[in-house]
Nucleic acid binder design. Structure first.
Lengths: 340, 340
DNA sequence: TTTAAAAATACAATCGATTGTATTTTTAAA
DNA sequence: TTTAAAAATACAATCGATTGTATTTTTAAA
């Protein structure tokens, strides 16, 4: 900040004006019991009079504590993530921590840059949902070596002594697929995310195992892998029409499911009669489209609160052992899956 | 960060290891021409070897520059705002600035806290879309006195020598209302936001003046004021049913419009035949519901880029005069407004 | 009133960088 | 080889706070 020197009031200016020592000013401003209340009042008054504004850079440098946690998120625009963030902020604020939100946009490069910035700024801890392309964790190591704490949320990771919070993706997927099967689907396509990360691996496995349990053949061609964007949904919908005999879709997110549904409807396909659909995330949009989308609801806000709590425990009490929490999900049944 | 002292490597450690002065190390790490390339290389190697991580707190304190801009946003979960943020980040990153995103959740109290934190952390500039309840700007003054730069975006404000970027809310509203009138609506209700801030005042005025122009009577009871949440949409829809003869709705956001539409549909009202509806924001959801929602599209990403550019200009070149930019909008016509 | 204990305040070093100036070393011209 | 200029490096102060220890002042008991 290009600031005129004259405007930056420091504790030394206050000290000089009152003819006392700056250490006393510092203690007064931090409400230390070592300063008499009379002096405290004089200092606070003078501080206001001079327009003093504390400089956290200096204080954080000295104390080696920033009372700040960094949150790395693939994208804030996804409802799931913004809810998680709300939960995080809720708990963090309560505990006296500031929150810095950073978007990786699913890029490993951005994620690395963010790690460096957060590290250089000495945040006390980091909550991270890794990008779709994060295949190794070398970029996390320097921060851990520096003594920082990391907690993974949403996308599960097994790394050193870091805690993590996620949902049971395998089970959720199994349930979703089972639901389609029980509704009479025989040829179920799976919209799968990048198999680089555990989250999507687990979701695929749940789908595969559900098919197996009910004696349906697993066909690798039925697994359509992408980043699950809106465009991907349309591309997949076209492929499904080419395949010809598909009667069910289980998508690893709502975004792709919804755009596929829109496209299929535009081509005269009846959802759910011709093709039943289940998504993942319970985006607000899923309850508004027609037919309503059957999907998996995750405890997003809760996940944020728990991740934040875990991290703050790690920060404030280094003894804490790493733990992995797995939260329960709920299959929200709407009309898109009523096949028969 | 509770860090073991032994792990914090500083430029002094590097200097000691190579038997040179720390000032040379500092210059080498900043790629200053004053250090020979041979020495630079030795320093960089040693830095890597020792696991050196620069401490921005110290550097920022010394240079009085953080290369960071703060963004205050009512809510990141709204599509409009997350797009603005993307634009901001895009430009900021290009220019070498970090971005700190903070949510006010439409609360003046939170906004004040955020200002204090950003100020204490000496961000170089702040982009702010004020909360719905921000009626005065006293909480912005200390930061300006400190020499900070503020640029308003989205929600227009007239304050000291701050620049601002917004859209022409009055014109947008006028157009939206005019569109309903031209489609045959005679009794148009307006879902209005808090009249405390200019944004919603302007939108209301546009509605009022459009009615006037077409000789329709303005009825204060037709102006329903709220925070435009989902719940508000339902409450308003019920009121409309009580009123009985309403044939058009112009809502100041999509959220309220959409929940009203959902409720009205559930009560057997035909949209747009019985009641035509226009929203505001062009949320993704507006194109997916049935009927598609006619709404106002704002250049969100562009707005973010321009706000960011303006702010960075202010930061880097204090001479710049404040300017107010007004961006153009577009009425996106879908089926919800085809009244006749 | 004297004096020991408690309370309040001052002293001085420190966190980890940056930067203007001084000094030393290297280079290259005479 | 000498020497002036240029290049490289070292010295020392500084950014604005915090904090352990030393000193001074106040309090209250004897």
């Amino acid at each position: 900040m290009s600031i005129k020197k004259t405007e930056q009031i420091t504790i030394h200016d206050i000290a000089r004006a009152l003819n006392i020592d700056s250490s006393t000013v510092s203690r007064a401003l931090n409400d230390s019991p070592r300063v008499s209340s009379k002096t405290k009042q004089r200092i606070l008054e003078k501080a206001t009079e001079l327009g003093y504004q504390r400089n956290s850079l200096a204080s954080n440098l000295r104390t080696n504590k920033t009372n700040t946690i960094g949150v790395i998120v693939p994208r804030i625009s996804r409802n799931f993530f913004s809810s998680v963030i709300s939960g995080i902020e809720d708990t963090a604020q309560e505990a006296g921590y500031n929150v810095i939100i950073c978007q990786s946009f699913e890029s490993l490069e951005r994620e690395k840059k963010i790690m460096e910035t957060l590290m250089a700024n000495r945040v006390d801890g980091i909550l991270i949902s890794i990008s779709m392309h994060t295949v190794n964790y070398d970029h996390l190591k320097p921060y851990l070596n520096l003594g920082g704490s990391i907690v993974f949320y949403d996308r599960p990771c097994h790394f050193e002594n870091c805690s993590s919070i996620s949902i049971n993706d395998y089970k959720a997927s199994f349930q979703a697929t089972e639901h389609l099967i029980q509704n009479g689907c025989k040829n179920i396509v799976h919209f799968s995310g990048p198999q680089l990360i555990d989250l999507y691996k687990n979701r695929k496995q749940g789908y595969v195992d559900a098919l197996k349990k009910y004696g349906l053949e697993f066909n690798e061609a039925y697994c359509l892998e992408s980043k699950l964007s809106e465009e991907d949904g349309v591309i997949f919908a076209k492929k499904i029409l080419e395949m010809g005999h598909i009667d069910g879709i289980y998508s690893s997110n709502d975004t792709a499911a919804i755009s596929a549904v829109q496209y299929l409807k535009s081509q005269g396909v009846n959802i759910p009669k011709d093709i039943a659909v289940v998504g993942f995330n319970n985006d607000p949009i899923s309850s508004v489209i027609e037919p309503g989308l059957t999907t998996i609801n995750q405890p997003d806000f809760e996940m944020g609160k728990m991740a934040s709590t875990l991290l703050i425990n790690h920060i404030e009490n280094k003894k804490t052992k790493p733990e992995s929490k797995v939260l329960d999900i709920e299959l929200v049944i709407r009309n898109s899956s009523k096949h028969n």
